[in-house]
Design a protein around this nucleic acid. Structure first.
Ligand code: ZN
Ligand code: ZN
Ligand code: ZN
Ligand code: ZN
Lengths: 162, 162
DNA sequence: GCGCCGGGCGATATAATGTAACGCCGCACG
DNA sequence: CGTGCGGCGTTACATTATATCGCCCGGCGC
């Protein structure tokens, strides 16, 4: 469900490259490799799983290698961190959020299936607005918001007749 | 701002005891000690900080000691975990949420000040409803929801004239 | 050319957070 | 009694994340 397949992956990488170019950020070879791995994963992927895969192309890779790349990708909004899972997921980003006009620091929410592990990113403005409103009502000035919902995805709920 | 002071702490412990009694759960001495420490903390507190403090009264305490107590307290809804901080916070619970009729698995959101670290729990039904609505729109059956907002609390925003 | 500087990264070590597994003990139940 | 189960002590380990040092390389001023 998640994960960017085949040609879509290349297209996403090309968009990422363009976005970085536009804002003067360097999408180096290492960063591109890490981004490719994150995008290719069908689920949110942990930093160490990413590291294992990265070592196939870059034998000397160590934890800081992948964490530094992830820090960059997070700053650029090309990946997100799923806090509940301590794992990372590619942003479906530009192509999916262009319609709502959000940039690289767009509001987003995650739907995490507790059965199959699939994690979907959605972008619901009403949720974002409700959260912002609740924060302001408490005299709080929000900067970044995490919304993560655990439950059953459509596929798993459908197959669970119990 | 967070943290339950003096007599309020004792009252909160008494309420916790009553709640456990009512549902047949045992609030043992260890669990009460951990709950007291969490409630007494002015901010969300990490498991290992908790462990350090716990050792004052229970020298042999080890990580499983505190994690097991926390698991129990989380199940009972007496504490919550702040995922962004990997830290735990006492539920302001019964007295604050009684008015909205929520039980020990009530919806809640956190407002985390990035300057002073204060973490406030709020209970906004519109946020909960918006999230549930967005999830259902995606064919997703939600069970548990995490909403955590990072930003500036009223006190810090007021004092930041920069 | 030459030296300086900064970002990116290799490499090592270590910190912080969280679990697995085993066994003891006390208590409820028959 | 014996049996089972929940709570907890204890040891070891797994997972996630960061600190630090130092090299390389490319840009920039001189
Ligand atoms: Zn996104
Ligand atoms: Zn599923
Ligand atoms: Zn609560
Ligand atoms: Zn503050």
């Amino acid at each position: 469900m998640s994960g960017t397949a085949g040609a879509g992956l290349e297209a996403a990488l090309a968009r990422a490259e363009a976005a970085c170019l536009a804002r003067g950020a360097q999408l180096t070879e290492l960063r591109r490799q890490v981004l490719r791995l994150v995008l290719a994963s069908p689920q949110a992927i942990g930093a160490y799983a990413l590291l294992d895969q990265l070592r196939a192309e870059r034998p000397g890779a160590a934890p800081p290698t992948v964490y530094r790349a992830l820090d960059f990708l997070l700053e650029q909004g090309l990946v997100h961190k799923v806090e509940r899972l301590n794992a990372f997921i590619g942003c479906v980003g530009p192509e999916a959020h262009a319609h709502c006009g959000h940039g690289h620091d767009h509001p987003h929410q995650f739907l995490i299936c507790s059965k199959c592990g699939a994690t979907a990113e959605v972008c619901d403005d009403r949720v974002a607005a409700a959260v912002a409103e609740a924060a302001r009502a408490a005299g709080f000035a929000p900067s970044r918001t995490t919304v993560e919902v655990e439950g059953l995805c459509a596929a798993c709920a459908g197959s669970a007749r119990q």
